[in-house]
Design a protein around this nucleic acid. Structure first.
Length: 634
RNA sequence: GCCCAUAUGGCUCAGGGGUAGAGCACUUCCUUGGUAAGGAAGAGGUCGUGAGUUCAAGUCUCACUAUGGGCUCCA
C-alpha cells in the first residue's frame, strides 16, 4: 500500500492519504487541520482518502454543515461497527448509511442486544477513538471482493446490489468494511455522538426477509450541537401526547377493550367537541352540507367500490342474517349514495357534503401509536361532486380552507402534488385537466408546491399537505384527491345544460385528517397549553373562602351559557395549594375570587401567558373571554 | 405481522426466590386561608393473564395480552 503520512501538530491528527497527493492538496490540508473532505463541482462529497492527485474541489471542514455531518456520521457508523465487532466477535454487518436523522447500522449477532448494551458500545467506541487509527481506503475488483467476503452472506448480499466492477474497502486498525465512503481521515475526528435506539429491521426492508438488529445513532461536530439535539429529544418526550394525554386526563386506552381503540375522557371530549364545533361552522360557511352514512354496509358495496380488492386486508367484517357486512374504513360510499338519492342538475354542482366519519381500519399491531395511529378514528371527511372543469376552482377553495385552519393553529405547511402513476384508470385528457387544475389552484394562490411525479392514486392526482409543528417535526394531515373512479363504478350522473347525462368528478378531502391524529399533534405542538378557543377547561375559579363558592358557581354558569368551560376549585385545601393545582392544569385563566371581588362584582385574573395578575369587572372579563372565543373562528 | 425492551395501588416509580414499599392523587378530621404544596389519621395492590420450575415465585422459565423503540432512506 502506498501512502503519504502527514502529521499535524495542533490536533496531533494523523492524516493518511492514499495515492500520491498533489502538493497543492497537502498544502491545503495543512492550512486547515479541520479538512475532512471535498465537494466536487457536482456537489458530490469526496473524502480525503479518495481525493487523489490533482483533485480540485471545495474544501469541507470539520463543522456542523450538512456535508461535514454526512462524513462524520458515516464514520461514526463504522466506528460503532468496529466497537460491536470487538464486543460481539461473531457480528456480521449489512449496511450502515447516513439517514435524515443520524445514522444506523444493520447487523447480525449471536447475542441479543438491548437498550442497556448501547452504553457499553458507546464506551468501546470512545476507547477506540483514543487509538487514533487513520481511516484508510483501498479498492479491489468485485471478483476479489466476492472471494474476500465469501464467508459473509450479508456482505455478499450487499455486493450483489453493486453494479460496479471495482469496490472500495475502508480500514481502521483491525476493522475493515466494504464501503463507498465518504469518511473522515482518522478516528480522532469523532467526538460527539450518541447511540439513540436499538431496533429490528428487515434485511433490505423486505417483510419476508430475515430480521437484523439495527442501532441508530447521531453525531455532530460540536458538543453544543449534540447537546441541543439531545435537548430537543427531551423536549419532545415531555410533550409526548401519550404522557400529556394521561396527565391532563384527555384520553385513555384499555387493554381489555382492545388495542388501538381510544376512549375520550371528559376533558379530552371537551377539547374535541370544541374543535368539532369550530370546524362544523367553518364547513357550513363554505357551503358544505352535513351528512351521515351508516357504520356498516353490505360487502357487495365494498366490492363495487374496489375497497374489498384494494383495502380488504384492513377491513373488519361481520355477518348479520347470513349476509356479510363490512365496517366502513372510509366514508365515500355513504356520500355517493346520498348524492344519488335524488337526480342532480349541473346547477347543483359543485355539491359539497361533509361528515365527521367514524372509520375502523385494521392497522398492524406493531404500528399502533397513541392517538397517532389507532384502529378507530374520526375523519373530517368531505366529498365534492363537480365537473372536470370545476376542479380548479373547487381545489382552490379547499386549499384556502386548509390554509385558514393551519394558520389558526400556528402551523407552517408545504404541499406536494402527486401526478399520474403508471397504473392508472381514466382518460389522459381528464388526468391532464385534473392535474393542471391542482397546479393552477396552487399557483394562483401563490402557494409553493413540489411535485411527486407518478405518485398519485390510481384513480386520480392529489395534493398532500405536510405541516410543521413547534418542534420542527413534519406531519402529513390534509389531503385533496381527485377521483374519476368511484363515480364510474357507482354510475353517478348529473343532468347537463343540454339535458344529457354526464359523469361528475369526485373530490375527496380531509383537512385535519383525523381528529385523533390532529389532536395528538396539537397536544405536542402546544405542549398541552391549548389556545383558549379549544382548551378543555378555559377558566378555573379559585374561591378564597367557603362563603365565596356561590359567587364562583354563578360565574361558572354564566360562562357555560356562552359555551365556555370552567371549573370551581373549592375543595378543602389551602389557597396556595389550590392555586398551584389550578396553574398546573395549564388552563388559560385562573381566577381568584374573595370577599373583595364579590363586593365589587369583579374577578382577579391570573393569565397563563402574561404570567401576571390583574383585576377586571365580571362584565369586562366576559367581553375578554368572548373576544378570545371569536378568535377561534375559521 | 416481525425484532428488541417493558408490565408492581388511580398516577410516577423503588424492590430481583422467604410477611408488598414510597411520593402524588383519594377518604375523614383539624385548619377558612389573599396568589404555586398547612397539619393529622385512613383506605387502596392475589405485583398484566395463564402455565411451569421450586419446600417457597412480583422476583426464575415459557406462552399469551398490552405498551414502547423500530422495520423506505440501498457498501
Amino acid at each position: 500500500m502506498q501512502g503519504t503520512l502527514v502529521s499535524l501538530p495542533k490536533r496531533g491528527a494523523l492524516l493518511l492519504f492514499l495515492h500520491n497527493i498533489s502538493n497543492k492538496n497537502i498544502k491545503r490540508s495543512i492550512l486547515s487541520e479541520n479538512l475532512i473532505g471535498y465537494s466536487d463541482n457536482q456537489g458530490n462529497i469526496v473524502d480525503t482518502q479518495s481525493g487523489g492527485e490533482g483533485f480540485v474541489g471545495e474544501v469541507i471542514e470539520y463543522d456542523n454543515s450538512d456535508k461535514a455531518l454526512e462524513i462524520i456520521r458515516h464514520s461514526t457508523a463504522h466506528l460503532m461497527a468496529q466497537a460491536i465487532t470487538q464486543l460481539y466477535p461473531n457480528s456480521q454487518f449489512f449496511v450502515g448509511p447516513v439517514v435524515e436523522e443520524g445514522f444506523y447500522y444493520d447487523f447480525r449477532t449471536s447475542q441479543k442486544i438491548g437498550e442497556e448494551d448501547l452504553k457499553k458500545i458507546e464506551n468501546k467506541m470512545k476507547e477506540l477513538i483514543k487509538q487514533k487509527h487513520p481511516i484508510e481506503k483501498y479498492t479491489i475488483t468485485k471478483e476479489e471482493a466476492l472471494v474476500k467476503f465469501a464467508h459473509d452472506d450479508l456482505k455478499l448480499a450487499v455486493l450483489s446490489r453493486i453494479p460496479d466492477e471495482e469496490v472500495s474497502i475502508y480500514r481502521q486498525g483491525e476493522f475493515e468494511d466494504l464501503c463507498r465512503g465518504p469518511h473522515v481521515p482518522a478516528l480522532n475526528f469523532l467526538h460527539h455522538f450518541k447511540l439513540t435506539r436499538v431496533a429490528g429491521a428487515y434485511l433490505g426492508g423486505d417483510e419476508k426477509a430475515e430480521m437484523l438488529t439495527r442501532i441508530y445513532g447521531i453525531a455532530f461536530a460540536t458538543k453544543e450541537a449534540l447537546k441541543e439535539y439531545l435537548f430537543m429529544i427531551e423536549e419532545a418526550k415531555k410533550r409526548d401526547h401519550r404522557k400529556l394525554g394521561n396527565e391532563l386526563e384527555l384520553f385513555m386506552f384499555d387493554e381489555e377493550a382492545g388495542a388501538g381503540l381510544p376512549f375520550w375522557m371528559p376533558k379530552g371530549a371537551r377539547l374535541r367537541s370544541k374543535l368539532e364545533a369550530i370546524l362544523f361552522k367553518a364547513h357550513r360557511k363554505r357551503g358544505y352540507e352535513p351528512v351521515r352514512g351508516p357504520e356498516i354496509l353490505k360487502s357487495d358495496m365494498w366490492h363495487t367500490s374496489g375497497h374489498f380488492a384494494c383495502y380488504g386486508e384492513n377491513m373488519y367484517l361481520t355477518v348479520i342474517d347470513e349476509q356479510e357486512y363490512g365496517i366502513k374504513p372510509m366514508n365515500c360510499i355513504g356520500h355517493i349514495e346520498i348524492f344519488k338519492q335524488s337526480s342532480k342538475s349541473y346547477r347543483d354542482l359543485p355539491y359539497k357534503m361533509f361528515e365527521y366519519g367514524v372509520v375502523h381500519r385494521h392497522e398492524k399491531s406493531g404500528v399502533l401509536n397513541g392517538l397517532l395511529r389507532v384502529r378507530e378514528f374520526t375523519q373530517d371527511d368531505a366529498h365534492i361532486f363537480c365537473t372536470p372543469q370545476q376542479i380548479q376552482e373547487v381545489v382552490l377553495e379547499v386549499v384556502e380552507f386548509v390554509d385558514a385552519v393551519m394558520k389558526k393553529f400556528d402551523f407552517n405547511y408545504t404541499m406536494e402534488i402527486s401526478t399520474k402513476p403508471e397504473k392508472a384508470i381514466g382518460e389522459d385528457a381528464v388526468w391532464e385537466l385534473a392535474t393542471e387544475g391542482l397546479k393552477n389552484a396552487l399557483t394562483q394562490n401563490h402557494l409553493p408546491y413540489t411535485i411527486d411525479e407518478g405518485g398519485g392514486a390510481f384513480y386520480g392526482p392529489k395534493i398532500d399537505v405536510k405541516i410543521t409543528d413547534a418542534l420542527g417535526r413534519k406531519w402529513q394531515c390534509a389531503t385533496i384527491q381527485v377521483d374519476f373512479n368511484l363515480p364510474e363504478r357507482f354510475d353517478v350522473e348529473y343532468v347537463a345544460q343540454d339535458n344529457s347525462r354526464q359523469r361528475p368528478v369526485m373530490i375527496h378531502r380531509a383537512i385535519l385528517g383525523s381528529f385523533e391524529r390532529f389532536i395528538a399533534i396539537l397536544i405536542e405542538h402546544y405542549a398541552g397549553e391549548f389556545p383558549f378557543f379549544i382548551a378543555p377547561t378555559q377558566v378555573i375559579f379559585v374561591p378564597i373562602g367557603e362563603k365565596n363558592i356561590d359567587y364562583a358557581n354563578t360565574l361558572h354558569t354564566m360562562l357555560l351559557d356562552e359555551d365556555i368551560d370552567s371549573e370551581v376549585l373549592s375543595k378543602n385545601e389551602s389557597l396556595n395549594k389550590r392555586i398551584r393545582m389550578a396553574e398546573k392544569q395549564r388552563v388559560p385563566y385562573v381566577v381568584v375570587i374573595g370577599d373583595e371581588e364579590e363586593a365589587n362584582g369583579s374577578v382577579a385574573v391570573r393569565d397563563r401567558r402574561a404570567k401576571e395578575q390583574y383585576n377586571l369587572t365580571k362584565e369586562e372579563f366576559m367581553v375578554k373571554l368572548l373576544q378570545q372565543l371569536k378568535e377561534g373562528r375559521i
